[in-house]
Nucleic acid binder design. Sequence first.
DNA 1: TCCTCTCCTTGCTT
DNA 2: AAAGCAAGGAGAG
Length: 304
Amino acid sequence: MALTARRRAPDPRPVRHKLPISGPLDLEATFTCGQAFRWRREPGGVWTGIVGKTELRVLGVENGILGLETAGPIDAAHLRHYFRLDENPEGHLGEARELRAIPGFVPLLGLRLLRQDPWETLASFICSAAANIGKISANVEAVASRHGEEISGSGRRAFPGPLAIARARESDLRRAGVGFRAPYLLGTARRVAEDPDAFWARLRSAPIDEARDELISLPGVGPKIADCALLFGLDRLEAYPVDRWIRRATRELMARPRARDEELARWAVRLGPGRGYLQQVLFHLRRTSGPFPSMAALRRRAGG
DNA sequence: TCCTCTCCTTGCTT
DNA sequence: AAAGCAAGGAGAG
């Protein structure tokens, strides 16, 4: 029994998917904007990523069809859900039509907010403190390669669950390059691992403020990382994470250079229930281009 | 209670 | 080559 169980099964044949997309899809922006940390571009232009216990290969977008292949246990419905293929991002613009007047904004509506695993999202963003996207990616990859499960047919590993990280030593995590965030990641893993299902179920059913407070009670999790977990991992598009870029961007839009974070969040409510989605577009745009005009100037520019 | 400041790893950039 | 910098948070004062 042990012998047959130990023998590795032959790699399943990859399954090709061709999935229709509602609205635009910009793979580059989606994978490099800093929401997810396990996507890589291969020399041929194919994007490879680890989602759950599977490796995905995204071949490209053609005539509104997303082409990808995977040998893992993931079906078309799951893929549509992950890439949010049935939602046109334009729908999240809501009342905030003025944003379209920001140079470069409209093309970035092809940025898809991915529906990611909440634990992987929380753990990844704990690693984001005083780091950059490249370093976060390296840390997440290293933690996975040390503590994650094998993926058949892939050289990479799945991101480890809270229990697997809870059983690690702080020194292991430090060796993965996590640095001073190691005790935070370990402490949060131990709290979540007590009863992960109940923990996430509680957060999903709670009002957003309560869910946010519970996340903030975890070590290494403050307002910003809590909002990232809510937005990227728990599908709460009202969460508006304020990091140093969004702080700048929102202050510029408000035309109030000294506004505090609490005021930014309150102001952002006017961007509508999809403001978290817009936050990601604004974040990416502000990072890759210059300062924003004020909202008042945008309104004039739009001819309103 | 609410600021403000410093420290915390690491590695790449200037 | 030393300093700056990067999707922050915790603790002190």
